[in-house]
C-alpha cells in the first residue's frame, strides 16, 4: 500500500506543473539550427544560378541511391557572367527514399546541397509517392525564395570532418581519367 501511495505522490506532483507537450499542428517547437530535414539545393544569388555543377559526387556517395543528376555546359560561362564551366541540368531527389544521412552534404565540393533545417523540410505528407520525387526547381525553391535562412554546415566545411575536398588539379585529373575510362568502355 505504501508503494502505491508513493507512486500517487509522484503523479499528483505532475498535476501541479505545466504540461511539457506542445499542441503540435497549431504550435510548433523551434527546430535547432542543426536540424536535419530533407536535403535541398542552394541558390547562388550573386551569379543568379544554382551552386550545383552537377558533378554527381552526391549521387555516387548516396547510400540509398536517391539522387539523379545530369550536367550541362553553363550558358553563363560563354556569356562571361559566371566562372562555372558546368552547371546542373536535371537534379532529381527522391524524398521517399532519402534516409537523411547527411553524406551528400558532407561530400559536396561546391557547398551546393544542405539539409533543410526548417519545418518545411520534414512536413511532406502527400497522397502520391511520385510527388516526393523533386526536380531541380522544387529543390531550389526553398533557398531561392529566402525561406531557408540559415542552413547548417560544419564550420570549416568538409575539411573539418576529415573528408577533405579535393584540390582542383586532383579533380581535373580524375575527370580526365573518368572520361578516358568512359571512352574505353
Amino acid at each position: 500500500m505504501l508503494g502505491i501511495l508513493k507512486a500517487l505522490k509522484t503523479t499528483l506532483r505532475a498535476a501541479m506543473r505545466k504540461p511539457v507537450t506542445v499542441q503540435y499542428p497549431t504550435e510548433k517547437k523551434e527546430l535547432p539550427h542543426r536540424s536535419r530535414g530533407l536535403p535541398v539545393l542552394l541558390w547562388d544569388f550573386e551569379k543568379d544560378e544554382p551552386f550545383c555543377t552537377g558533378c554527381q559526387v552526391c549521387a555516387r556517395y548516396c547510400p540509398v541511391d536517391c539522387i539523379t543528376v545530369t550536367m550541362k555546359d553553363n550558358p553563363k560561362k560563354a556569356a562571361g557572367k559566371s566562372k562555372r564551366k558546368k552547371i546542373v541540368d536535371q537534379f532529381y531527389l527522391d524524398y521517399a527514399r532519402c534516409m537523411r544521412c547527411d553524406i551528400c552534404v558532407e561530400v559536396c565540393n561546391f557547398d551546393a546541397i544542405v539539409m533543410n533545417n526548417t519545418w518545411e523540410g520534414v512536413e511532406l505528407s502527400t497522397y502520391d509517392r511520385q510527388d516526393l520525387v523533386l526536380d531541380t526547381d522544387a529543390l531550389l525553391k526553398q533557398s531561392r525564395t529566402g525561406q531557408l535562412k540559415d542552413p547548417f554546415r560544419e564550420p570549416m566545411g568538409v575539411a573539418h570532418s576529415g573528408w577533405s575536398p579535393k584540390v582542383e588539379e586532383e579533380e581535373e585529373a580524375e575527370e580526365t581519367k573518368a572520361s578516358e575510362e568512359g571512352g574505353e568502355g
Binding site: 500500500m1 505504501l2 508503494g3 502505491i4 508513493k6 507512486a7 505522490k9 509522484t10 503523479t11
Partner: peptide
C-alpha cells in the same frame, strides 16, 4: 517512486 516499491 513509480516502480521500485510499487506493489503491483
Amino acid at each position: 517512486g513509480l516502480i521500485v516499491d510499487n506493489e503491483v
